[in-house]
Design a protein around this nucleic acid. Structure first.
Lengths: 219, 219
DNA sequence: ACAATAGTGTCTGTGAGACAGTATCGA
DNA sequence: TCGATACTGTCTCACAGACACTATTGT
């Protein structure tokens, strides 16, 4: 890095692209926007914001999430950085992709106050077929989808897609959607046993046996 | 991203920092350089290069690896992007960290022709104590160390740290060093059985039973 | 013969997978 | 009572862990 005065050279722009995932009606959904300008006008795209000089990448991501959803304090993590030269045909933009996970109730709660026109799109539908997606965002979404399926197997990431209190059938649906396959409830409960704590609460009002509510064990 | 003309604003510089790992004498080693300028003059640092406008991030990483080691075609992957505001006290530099893995024989072979003064440092020694490391490179190295230990458990990443032909005891050492614990050879061999193929070759010349050479199964 | 390392056979416990059964609500 | 979903008990099988044993080289 020595012998190189960076200020003399042309620099790329740096942006953060956001993948806000949630689960609704047993389907994985992603927050998308419809582009209203060229290039890729009219096509679905990931929401994104440019990195400002006075904020870290994580702060940029937080700001972007707040702008799109009105929410703060939700779970997010850096995904990958995409740096192909012409990924944006206008100019060189390096994009640091961030993935956020929100329980759908939180998202619904803030939907009315949303600043920009963002909508939830079914991820499997979006990726199926050859539907066009702006920029290299298809690749980004495919990578995130893959990472999500992977991480659910060896981390507790699924808990970010349910609320503070949840039933085991509800949590099981999250796992099933992310893994793309059905699980046996008996085995699922055994596997989760060490990660959760019973509460005294039960669901009610539905035409079948109520379900106990659990919380995540802190440990 | 609309309504924002990036060209009007000040932009950060983007660099690629490199973590070239190898295993030597049953220890994990990392290619480091000694800084010869302020800031952090005299301190160990990761080699790094700035991203040029006409190359992707992967190409930047390849170029950097070639500059430091003279090698091309070795395994590398993007690690994480570090974007703290003052991680470089001179100016805003966003760093995309890349991790490369090389069998030590390859590195030794090219050591004579090295362009810059880089040297191998024992990673555990480097991270132990409070030895100072330039920039936020300690954090980057710790993250890479953690990721390596993690990935060895659920990927085939360890194979990149041995040559095309290797003995099972040799491969086991790689696993043991990355995991930081000893393994039982009988169990290790069973676990590897599906991933490797016997060759007709054996080691020779050492004062004990020769060892069969294997290669990675393509499958 | 001995030191040193390579390689094998086998027992055990744990945990995933599979499935059949019981429990409890509203209608 | 019935439909629907919540929840439990238990069998099997694969595999990780542990350990004791045998094999083959150079000196």
């Amino acid at each position: 890095m020595e012998q190189y005065d960076a200020s003399k050279y042309e620099k790329p722009s740096v942006a953060v692209d956001l993948l806000v995932f949630t689960i609704e009606d047993r389907r994985l959904k992603l927050l998308m926007i419809e582009r209203e300008e060229e290039p890729f006008c009219g096509m679905p795209a990931l929401p994104g914001v440019f990195v400002r000089m006075d904020e870290t990448l994580d702060e940029t991501a937080e700001r972007g999430i707040a702008e799109e959803t009105g929410l703060s304090g939700i779970y997010f993590e850096q995904l990958y950085t995409f740096g192909d030269i012409h990924r944006d045909p206008r100019m060189r933009i390096i994009s640091v992709a961030y993935m956020a996970l929100v329980p759908v109730e939180k998202l619904a709660y803030k939907a009315g106050e949303r600043v920009r026109t963002a909508y939830l799109e079914d991820v499997e539908d979006l990726l199926a077929g050859d539907k066009e997606i702006a920029f290299d965002h298809r690749k980004i979404i495919e990578y995130a989808r893959w990472r999500l399926a992977n991480k659910v197997e060896y981390t507790d990431i699924a808990f970010h897609l349910v609320g503070k209190l949840f039933t085991l059938p509800e949590l099981q649906i999250v796992y099933e959607v992310l893994l793309g396959k059905e699980l046996y409830k008996a085995n699922f409960r055994k596997k989760m046993a060490d990660l959760i704590e019973e509460t005294e609460y039960m669901t009610s009002g539905e035409a079948h046996r109520p379900s106990r509510l659990y919380r995540r064990k802190e440990s």
